[in-house]
């Protein structure tokens, strides 16, 4: 546990002073972004000051939103299924490699865990070739894209979803494994003696007990998929199917300094879902990263 004895009042005060100053360090770039996004001219006043009454505008937010709206929608279509699928597959993989205990599972597990640390540059060319040449979903599933509400570029999004699921499995497996290791062996043994099959044990015992870990994994993985730029560029590229990070990286680049208001507003719009998730579930996020 932590140090119990309390320092003297003066030192305690100093400690709080430092910690509060550090809040400034971590929040100032974000606060400055917010203030700048609300100013008519980002150069008019010091960046951290709020806009004056005559210099206040929501126009930058409107502009940024109109440029990012399509990307936001694509990101939702991408991140929600990709997150749920990789969490589910991570949970079953961890169950099959942890709770179900068999000889020789360690090498398989090492392959799963090493997958967390792969630099994606080592797979990018095969990944883009695979989706572009060998399995071009936008062409192969043409009949599907003819259905109402669907467009050919959804094929690229589907490819991106599958890629994110595949590359997300290692981390979700590790998260669930650290959780399942602490489950009591007696509980599983008792169920087995009652004649329960592995499927039944997973469905009736493990899955219901996994809810807290699903919260951690879903939040962590949602943030990862939502925030990704590299796969989005390589698998989908700029255009109608692009997730929000792609247009955001281009936003205001041609507008020089005046464009910073739009850039900042855009950064907030693109970050909003992750910020909301983080504020609501900060505890789970901290658990996810600490594992």
């Amino acid at each position: 546990m932590s140090i119990h004895e309390r320092a003297s009042d003066g030192r305690q005060l100093l400690l709080y002073g430092v910690l509060v100053a550090l809040i400034g360090f971590y929040l100032l770039p974000i606060e400055i972004g917010l203030m700048t996004s609300l100013k008519m001219n980002p150069l008019s006043t010091a960046p951290f000051l709020p806009p004056g009454l005559d210099g206040f505008t929501l126009e930058k937010w409107r502009q940024a939103f109109s440029q990012l709206a399509n990307g936001l929608f694509n990101s939702l279509v991408l991140a929600i299924p990709a997150t749920i699928l990789s969490a589910l597959l991570g949970s079953t993989a961890a169950y099959g490699l942890t709770t179900l205990n068999w000889r020789g599972q360690m090498p398989i597990l090492v392959l799963f865990i090493a997958g967390i640390f792969i630099p994606y540059q080592a797979v990018l060319i095969p990944l883009s070739k695979f989706w572009a040449v060998y399995l071009p979903l936008d062409e192969l599933l043409q009949t599907v894209w003819g259905l109402p509400m669907l467009e050919p570029y959804h094929g690229d999004l589907l490819a991106l979803i599958i890629s994110h699921v595949a590359y997300g499995i290692p981390i979700t497996t590790l998260l669930f494994r650290t959780y399942y290791r602490n489950f009591s062996v007696e509980m599983i043994e008792a169920a087995r003696l009652d004649g329960a099959t592995p499927i039944r044990i997973y469905w009736r015992i493990i899955l219901p007990l996994s809810v807290p870990m699903f919260a951690v994994t879903l939040i962590y993985q949602f943030t990862q998929v939502w925030n990704d730029l590299l796969f989005a560029l390589v698998v989908v590229g700029p255009g109608e199917g692009a997730p929000v990070t792609v247009p955001l990286s281009q936003l205001g680049a041609s507008l020089s300094e005046i464009g910073f208001g739009v850039r900042m507003a855009g950064a907030f719009i693109a970050a909003l879902p992750t910020i909301v998730v983080y504020i609501m579930f900060g505890e789970q996020f901290a658990k996810g990263v600490a594992t």
């Binding site: 809040i23 400055i32 992750t274 910020i275 996020f285």
Partner: peptide
């Protein structure tokens, strides 16, 4: 608060 920046995308923090 200290962990908040980590939840943001590189694309977002690059703008900031």
């Amino acid at each position: 608060i200290y962990l908040l920046p980590m939840s943001l995308s590189f694309v977002v923090t690059a703008q900031f």
